[in-house]
Design a protein around this nucleic acid. Structure first.
Lengths: 204, 204
DNA sequence: CGACAAAACTAACGATTGTTAGTTAAAACT
DNA sequence: AGTTTTAACTAACAATCGTTAGTTTTGTCG
């Protein structure tokens, strides 16, 4: 019995180690991708940042494409799940939009590099991954659009063109990662309140 | 006299032709850069889109870098000039912000591909061009920031964190190029009014 | 028509790309 | 202790990169 348990523990450690090494590569690569873009970063660049040779990377990953795919699909799922949670709630459109703003900020704080790749390098995905991510993006936007339209129909949102509202908010949220660094000491909850205020009530 | 005039006319045609061919290359390249990014587009890609061989491009341009530089510096100057015009005006902060929104839309309509390069590929500029564009960007943001701060100090803008206001508006304006295609039949003036409304008065 | 220049071409360069094969040192398991 | 596995390495591959040199085609002027 002890032997059996030991086996499981070691198996988990094994999985964890292997997983950790791959995660290191993904993490290091994501930083480089954010700075220069996927195409401008070579496997040798990634290897150098990991203090190894390019060929050694292939002991842990199948190729450059897998790094990008891992990076992007991961955060795309994060957004999709968060949006589905909000959609399932029984609350007003305005309340839902507030929730969207808030989870965008939360996800940005922990997935800044992933978001950079999602925003700027999604077109370099291939095959199924590309289709999947594009589909998730379209569904996401369609959900957001439906919330806005409902808000307008209920008279709770000012009757501007839904597309203008959608992309005004979404553009701001999607590029939040760019100046999150400068956020510095600004507390996340204060940022949430400020952004909800600015995006919903405007600035005048 | 007729000969002299003829000479000038032909000179202009000559300049125009040479310039036009270079401009064609820059225009075609900008479209490719917008779709895949500077680093993912090869000189052979550009040549193919122009129905020529890569080597022939060098009869008109000095290299790939010049294309990027031409593209980015051109629109950066456009924004800088527009901002300086607004700064020189004697009008309220709110009025200035409206003007900024409007010229962003105007410039986006005619320089969509240039803006894509400015947003996504500025870091691939080299030497003087890189420094120059970064400087212009910093100055631009500083001007915008001062307008916002003044508006808050005068009590005309709600006292949110200036940085949040600045980047909320600027993110929307900078990524406008992404969905300008979808704008379709929407009139530019209607778009201006909608965006001013959404960005200044919010959506509730 | 002949002269000349503009703008295309072919061919090739050295460098870099992502990736594979085969090897070796260290670590882990039996 | 002996065996196997992990994860690094060196070396090299075919392909592609931006760019240059030299040549040929095209078109325009006198």
């Amino acid at each position: 019995m002890y032997d059996g348990l030991s086996g499981w523990v070691l198996f988990f450690i094994f999985v964890l180690m292997k997983s950790t090494r791959k995660e290191e590569i993904v993490a290091v690569a994501s930083g480089l991708f954010k700075e220069k873009g996927y195409s401008a970063v070579s496997m040798r660049d990634i290897a150098q940042a990991m203090n190894m040779k390019a060929a050694s990377l292939y002991n842990h990953i199948s190729g450059k494409q897998e790094i990008l795919s891992t990076l992007i699909v991961r955060v795309a799922i994060e957004f999709t799940n968060a949006m589905e949670t909000v959609m399932a709630e029984e609350s007003s459109p305005i309340n839902k939009i507030e929730k969207i703003i808030e989870f965008h900020i939360d996800i940005t704080v922990t997935y800044a590099e992933n978001i950079a790749a999602l925003n700027n390098d999604w077109m370099h995905l291939e095959g199924t991954d590309l289709k999947r991510v594009v589909k998730m993006r379209e569904d996401y936007e369609e959900n957001f659009r439906s919330i806005i339209k409902q808000g307008i129909n209920e008279g709770r949102l000012r009757p501007n063109h839904p597309e203008v509202i959608l992309f005004s908010i979404l553009s701001t949220l999607r590029t939040l990662y760019l100046w999150n660094e400068k956020r510095g000491k600004m507390d996340v909850n204060i940022l949430k309140k400020d952004m909800v205020s600015v995006l919903l009530k405007g600035i005048v």
